[in-house]
Design a protein around this nucleic acid. Structure first.
Length: 573
RNA sequence: CGGGGCGUAGCGCAGCUUGGUAGCGCGCCUGCUUCGGGAGCAGGAGGCCGGAGGUUCAAAUCCUCUCGCCCCGACCA
C-alpha cells in the first residue's frame, strides 16, 4: 500500500470520549471511528488487524478439527422461545418484527441456531463428535457500552460449539479447545492468564476464562504465584476465620448516623470484621437477608449459586424499610421475621458480633449466631481479595486485572434437551447430545493486544497481528535515487510475502516517523540520502527502538526473513 | 436503570458567571521558503453554538423540554 493513496486518517489528538489507551490509540491511528454508542466502523487498518486475529483463530481451530460455518444474524423468535431465552435474555436482546409482524432478534450468541441445525442433521452416534464455529457479528444491547471496541453493542465474535455423545467426549472436546485457545492467544502475541470461571447454574469446573492481563481490565482474577492456581475472584473459594468471641451480652447501643460498616466500626471502636453486614436481597422475588463479615464484599454470583436462584438483586430502600422497619443501614438478623437468613460460613457459631438492630440509629453489640439469631443457610458468600489463601496450596494470593478475551464452557444438555438434539447410540437408544461452547472476542482481542503493547508514541503491534509488517519511509522525496531504492524494496518485499506500506507522501520526515510509530508497524525501513550514499538501509524495530544498518545488497531478504521468522516464532512457541 | 459530567469548525478547547460583532490551537486549501522526529511566513475556506420551545428590543450565554455522548455501579466475548 502506498501511504499517499491509503485511507489512514491519523490524528494528533484523540476525541475526549476515549479514555482507555487502546480506544484512544485505535482512534488516533485511524483504525476505528464511532457511529453511535458502542457501534464502530472499522477502517482499513482496523480491518487488517482484526483479519489477522480471525485468520489465526481459523488456522488453530481447523487444526484442532473444528469446522467453520456461518449462521444467520437474524434469528426467528420461536427458537429462542423454545429454550426460554426469549424471556430470560431481557433487554440485551435486540428484537424486531418483520413486515408480517413476526418476531425476530439479532443473535447475541448462537446456541439456539447451531443446536437447531445439528438436531436436524445428526441422527446417529456415527455422526458425532462435531465441532462447529463461526466468526460473525453479534448484537447485544449492552447496558453500558464502553472502552471503544472492547465492549460494543455490535461486535465480532468467534463462537464455537462442540457436540458429543457423552460427558467424556464433551470433556475431550473441551480440552482440545482450551489447548487451541492457548495457541491462538500466544500466536497473537498476548500474555495470558487462564482462570477458572463461574459456571453458574450448570455447575462443575468446566468453565475457563482467557484473560489478557492489563490494568485497564474489567475483571479481577486471583492468582497464586506459588502453585499457579488462578480463578475469577467471583469463583475463588474464600475461607475467612473470625475470632471466637462468644459469651458476651447482647446489648443495644445508640449509633447515630452510623450507616456504613466503617462508620459503625469507628463509632464503636470495633474492628470492621466484627461488624456484620446484613444486606437485603430479592432472591427470585422473595426477600432474603445475606450476612457477611463487615470487612469483606458480598459475592452475588456465589450467593446465587448457593441458593440455586435464577435472579438476585439488592432490595430497594422501600423494601428494606418495610422489612426492617428502619432506615437503610440498620438491618440485622435479630428478630427479623419472615425472611430467610443466609450467612457466610465464617459467621457460624460466632459471637461478639455487631449487628444492625432493625431500628434507625441503633446496633447490637455482642451478637451471637445460634443464640441471638439463627442463619437458615451457610455458604461461602465472599469475593476473593488480595492476600486470601490459595484454595489449592494455602499461600496468600494476588489479585490482578484482566480483559476477558475468551471463554470456554461445558454446556451439558441444556440446549440439546430444549431443542431435541438427540441421536441413536450403538444400542439403538435415544441419547441427548452433550454440548460445549467456546467464544473469543475478536475485536476485544485486538484492543487487548494494544493495551498490552504500546508506549507514549503509539501502538507496538506483535508482528503476527500487525496490519502491515513494514513501513518504508522515504525520508526525502526529492532524492530520486532514494525513491528508486524504496520503490524496488517495496515491490520486492511484496513478492516475498511481507506486507509493506511505502510512505511516499510529500511530507516532512518527522511526520512520517510519527505516523509510523503511532500506527505501530513492527519495523520501519528508513530510506534516506545519507544511508544510500553509503550503500546502507536503516531498519528500526518499533518494539526495541534498535536501528540496524543493512547493506543494500540482500537487504530485502534480510528484512523479509526477520519478519517472517518472527511470525513463525510466535506460532511455534 | 440509578449517580456524575459534557454537547461551540474535522479534532482539542475558550467564550456562558454578568445576554449585544463567535474565537484560539491543530488539521484543511493557495503561494513562497524549509526538508531525519508532527516546519516557518503570508493569504484563505470552514459554524442552523446538539434540537425544540420560551423569556427579552436582543440568546452560544437565562428558563423548560428533548436528543446524543462520556464516566462510576449491576451484564458479558
Amino acid at each position: 500500500m502506498r501511504f499517499s493513496k491509503a485511507f489512514f486518517p491519523t490524528l494528533k489528538e484523540a476525541p475526549a470520549e476515549a479514555e482507555v489507551v487502546s480506544h484512544r490509540l485505535m482512534i488516533r491511528a485511524g483504525m476505528i471511528r464511532r457511529l453511535a454508542a458502542g457501534v464502530y466502523t472499522l477502517l482499513p487498518l482496523g480491518v487488517r488487524a482484526q483479519r489477522k486475529v480471525e485468520q489465526i483463530c481459523r488456522e488453530e481451530l481447523d487444526r484442532a478439527g473444528a469446522q467453520e460455518v456461518f449462521l444467520p444474524t437474524l434469528n426467528p423468535a420461536e427458537l429462542w422461545q423454545k429454550t426460554g431465552r426469549w424471556d430470560v435474555y431481557g433487554k440485551e436482546l435486540i428484537r424486531l418484527k418483520d413486515r408480517h409482524g413476526r418476531d425476530f432478534c439479532l443473535g447475541p450468541t448462537h446456541e439456539e441456531v447451531i443446536t437447531n441445525l445439528v438436531s436436524r442433521e445428526v441422527r446417529s452416534y456415527r455422526d458425532l463428535p462435531q465441532n462447529l464455529y463461526q466468526i460473525q457479528t453479534k448484537f447485544r444491547d449492552e447496558i453500558r457500552p464502553r472502552f471503544g471496541i472492547m465492549r460494543g453493542r455490535e461486535f465480532t465474535m468467534k463462537d464455537g460449539y462442540s457436540f458429543d455423545r457423552d460427558e467424556k467426549g464433551a470433556e475431550e472436546s473441551y480440552g482440545l479447545m482450551v489447548e487451541a485457545y492457548k495457541r491462538i492467544f500466544r500466536r497473537c502475541g498476548l500474555t495470558l492468564g487462564v482462570a477458572a470461571a463461574d459456571s453458574g447454574a450448570i455447575g462443575g469446573s468446566f468453565s475457563h476464562e482467557f484473560m489478557v492481563m492489563a490494568d485497564s481490565g474489567e475483571e479481577a482474577i486471583s492468582v497464586c504465584e506459588k502453585c499457579g492456581y488462578s480463578a475469577n475472584v467471583e469463583k475463588t473459594p474464600v475461607e475467612v476465620t473470625l475470632p471466637d468471641n462468644r459469651g458476651g451480652e447482647l446489648e443495644k447501643v445508640h449509633t447515630p448516623d452510623a450507616h456504613t460498616v466503617d462508620e459503625v466500626a469507628t463509632f464503636l471502636d470495633f474492628p470492621p470484621e466484627q461488624v456484620t453486614k446484613t444486606l437485603l436481597y430479592m432472591v427470585d422475588d422473595e426477600p432474603a437477608a445475606l450476612m457477611i463479615p463487615g470487612h469483606r464484599e458480598l459475592n452475588e454470583s456465589k450467593a446465587k449459586n448457593a441458593l440455586g436462584a435464577a435472579t438476585l438483586f439488592l432490595a430497594d430502600a422501600a423494601v428494606v424499610e418495610r422489612i426492617t422497619k428502619a432506615a437503610v443501614g440498620f438491618a440485622g438478623p435479630v428478630g427479623l421475621e419472615g425472611v430467610r437468613i443466609i450467612a457466610d460460613n465464617s459467621l457460624k457459631g460466632r459471637g461478639g458480633l455487631v449487628l444492625g438492630a432493625n431500628e434507625t440509629d441503633h446496633h447490637y453489640t455482642g451478637g451471637e449466631e445460634g443464640r441471638d439469631f439463627r442463619a437458615d443457610v451457610f455458604a461461602d458468600l465472599i469475593v476473593a481479595g488480595e492476600g486470601d489463601s490459595c484454595p489449592e496450596c494455602g499461600e496468600p494470593m494476588n489479585i490482578r486485572r484482566g480483559i476477558e478475551v475468551g471463554h470456554v464452557f461445558k454446556l451439558g444438555c441444556k440446549y440439546s434437551e430444549a431443542l431435541d438434539a438427540n441421536f441413536l447410540d450403538e444400542n439403538g437408544e435415544t441419547k441427548t447430545i452433550v454440548m460445549g461452547c467456546y467464544g473469543i472476542g475478536i475485536g476485544r482481542t485486538v484492543a487487548a493486544a494494544i493495551e498490552q503493547n504500546h508506549d507514549e508514541d503509539g501502538i507496538i503491534w506483535p508482528t503476527p497481528i500487525a496490519p502491515y509488517h513494514v513501513d518504508i519511509i522515504l525520508a526525502n522525496m526529492k532524492d530520486t535515487v532514494c525513491r528508486e531504492v524504496a520503490e524496488k524494496l517495496y515491490a520486492a518485499l511484496g513478492g516475498l510475502g511481507v506486507e509493506a506500506v511505502l510512505d511516499d507522501r510529500d511530507e516532512r520526515a518527522g511526520v512520517k516517523f510519527k505516523d509510523a510509530d503511532l500506527i505501530g508497524f513492527p519495523y520501519q525501513v528508513i530510506v534516506g540520502p545519507k544511508g544510500i550514499k553509503e550503500g546502507r538501509l536503516e531498519v528500526k524495530s518499533r518494539k526495541t527502538g534498535e536501528r540496524d544498518f543493512l547493506p543494500l545488497e540482500g537487504a530485502t531478504e534480510a528484512v523479509a526473513s526477520r519478519i517472517l521468522g518472527e511470525i513463525e516464532t510466535f506460532a511455534s512457541a
